[in-house]
Structure formats: structure tokens, C-alpha cells
Write a protein that binds this DNA or RNA. Structure first.
Lengths: 186, 186
DNA sequence: GTCTATAAGCAGATAGAC
DNA sequence: GTCTATCTGCTTATAGAC
């Protein structure tokens, strides 16, 4: 039996680009078909329950990639300032200089909200905890760390939105570059 | 000739709620019909070019309301810290404690982006200038004022997104309450 | 695993009566 | 100014051949 031309993971990656640009409702099966090179019926082979399954798969894979590419490289025993600088660089890369949206933003709108809100809520909670534990290592108390972790997420989401809306990606890059200093400011 | 039961302005207000919740693509004429109590054909009386016209009308009216309710109350001759506190309160009210989205965010996604990007870009530029001129009154130089104005918009947009995604409106309220201090910090 | 063909329904939009 | 009725095209989704 020959290996499939595409793994499911590769298909999901191609779906991701479309969902990130158009949101959940704004994405049609025709777009997804064109992006993957598979006709609609073929997509149903990978995702039997259709668009909803595709959204879930994309959300999960992007979440995993975020942890791998942005969070896991952080060395909790390293210099905190350097680790935050590293995180900043990885954030810029992950969001392609501000060119792509965050799924947590675009999947929390309209009818998609009901479908994905539990997952999205958990992801934000988890991300808050990870960043907060990093800041606790830097000497902030539990509550301060949690507040600053939320600030960081607010900063990322806001900078992505403003960069996209204004058409100026530099807004995102600048915001990420000052993020480490902001988080450690007394 | 009797007065119409609804003015166009009132109709636009009802459309606004739907567009803010579902975004442009996610909003259907059926939703708009239900929200206004008018059948689809009646909506075309007010907006001859259809959904696109409705989006433009909503964008314009919300922009005007923002200037009236958040920007114009600011007294450029008053105490700067007090004026920013006032702005903070008005922002919380305008976005209904974080319950409603910003149109500049949700109208900059997917296919709606091409339709509205020029308007959205101009609105952000204008808003940046207004806030920057306020900060110049507080003694910041031109470049610092502009940067901090962008920071403020990033903060508002980010806090709205995180509040919506996490289902915790307090995130937005908290962020708005610390905004004045943040903007004036040396 | 990929395809052709097709179903059922909803989308945005229009004609024309009242 | 609001309506009923209708149109065309696109939507998600499925059946079944290869």
C-alpha cells in the first residue's frame, strides 16, 4: 500500500492558512478544497463531520505548534530577560510578522463561538498559567505574575488586530519587541 | 404623509448589534431582517446596494458615535490625568463592559477586508492622531505621543479580544482602568 | 483515498403589488 | 415604505464509482 501523497497533518496545515485569514464562518469548503487541492468529498474522508471537524483539527494543531515553537524553547532555568527576548522573537515568527491572525480571536466570533468556546477558554487559561509561572521565576508574586501574563496575551492579540486593521505590520513587530521590557517593568 | 415607524438611524443601530457579534461575513440578511423586523426586500429600500451598504452605514455610524461618546467629551484644557480617566470610563461604556466587539477588528477579516480596508485604515490613523495630540498636551514629544496612542489602541483591541475569547469581561474592564496610568508612565 | 455527480437548503438580491 | 414571491448561485453535505 503506497504512502498517501499527503499526511493528514499536511492537509491540516493547508486548512490553517485559510481559517486564519477568513475566520470560521468566512471560510467555505470551496476555499479549503482549493487550498488543499482536494475536492470537497475528499475532505470528508479526513474530516467525516465536515467543516466543524476541520476547525477543531486546525485549532488543535495550531495550539500544539504554539506550545512547541513559542513556549517549549523557554528555559525556565535560564536568564529571565533573555528567555523573554527569545519568546518575543518566536512570537514574531509564529505570527509571520503580523501577517496572520490568531485563531483564538477569529474562532471566538459569531456562531463559531459556541462551537469552540470551551476549547478556546481552556487554551487561554493554560497559556496564562505557563507565562505566569515563568514570571514567578523572575520574582513576581503569584497575582502579579498572573496579571502580567494576561497583559502579555492582550498585547499580542491587540497588536495583531491593529497591525491587520491598519495594514502596518510594523505595529506588531514593535509591540513584540518591547514586550519583554514591559513584562519585567516594576 | 405619516412619519416612518423607524428612522434610518434606528435601523442602522439594530444592524450594528448583529454585525458586531457575527462580523461581516458571518452576518446574513436573514439575521439583519430578524433584528430589524423588516423583510429582506425592505432592507433594500434603505440600502439599495445590499449588505455592503449596510456594512458601510454601520461602520460610519459607529465611528461617529465613538467620536461623540469617547473623544469629544475630552477637554483639552482640563487636567490630563482626569481626562484620560474619563476616556477610560467612556470606553468601558462604549464597548458595554467588553460584551461587544470593535468593528475595526471584525470588519478587517477575510473578504470584508478589501471592502472596508481604506475606511478602517483612515479611522485608525485619525484616532491615533487625536489621542497623540492629547498626549502632547501632557508634555510628551511628537513621536512618544504617537507611539503611546498606538499602544492605547492596541490595549483596547487586545483587551476586547481576550475578554471575548476567555469569556471573562473583567479582563477588559481591568485593562481600561489601568490605561490612563499606563499612558502617562515615564 | 480520490473522484464525479448530486441533493437540499440558504445566501444575496430583485420585480413588482399595495 | 413594506410586503410576497421568486431567482440564481453558492453553501454544506452525501452517495457511490474507481
Amino acid at each position: 500500500m503506497p504512502a498517501p501523497l499527503k499526511t493528514k497533518e499536511e492537509v491540516i496545515e493547508q486548512l490553517t492558512d485559510v481559517f486564519r485569514e477568513h475566520g470560521y464562518t468566512g471560510t467555505t469548503l470551496s476555499m479549503l478544497s482549493e487550498a488543499t487541492g482536494l475536492v470537497k468529498a475528499s475532505l470528508y474522508h479526513y474530516f467525516p463531520r465536515g467543516k466543524k471537524d476541520m476547525g477543531l483539527a486546525v485549532l488543535e494543531q495550531v495550539g500544539d505548534r504554539f506550545l512547541q515553537e513559542v513556549i517549549e524553547p523557554i528555559d525556565l532555568d535560564g536568564n529571565i530577560s533573555e528567555q523573554l527576548e527569545l519568546m518575543s522573537l518566536h512570537l514574531i515568527k509564529f505570527y509571520k510578522d503580523g501577517r496572520v491572525a490568531c485563531l483564538l480571536e477569529v474562532f471566538s466570533l459569531g456562531q463559531a463561538r459556541e462551537l469552540f468556546q470551551d476549547i478556546i477558554k481552556k487554551r487561554i487559561e493554560r497559556l496564562t498559567n505557563v507565562i505566569a509561572s515563568l514570571l514567578q521565576k523572575a520574582g513576581f508574586d503569584s497575582e502579579q505574575s498572573r496579571q502580567r501574563a494576561i497583559d502579555a496575551i492582550v498585547q499580542v492579540e491587540g497588536a495583531l488586530v491593529v497591525a491587520r486593521a491598519s495594514g502596518d505590520r510594523q505595529v506588531f513587530i514593535d509591540a513584540m519587541q518591547v514586550l519583554p521590557t514591559q513584562l519585567l517593568r516594576m
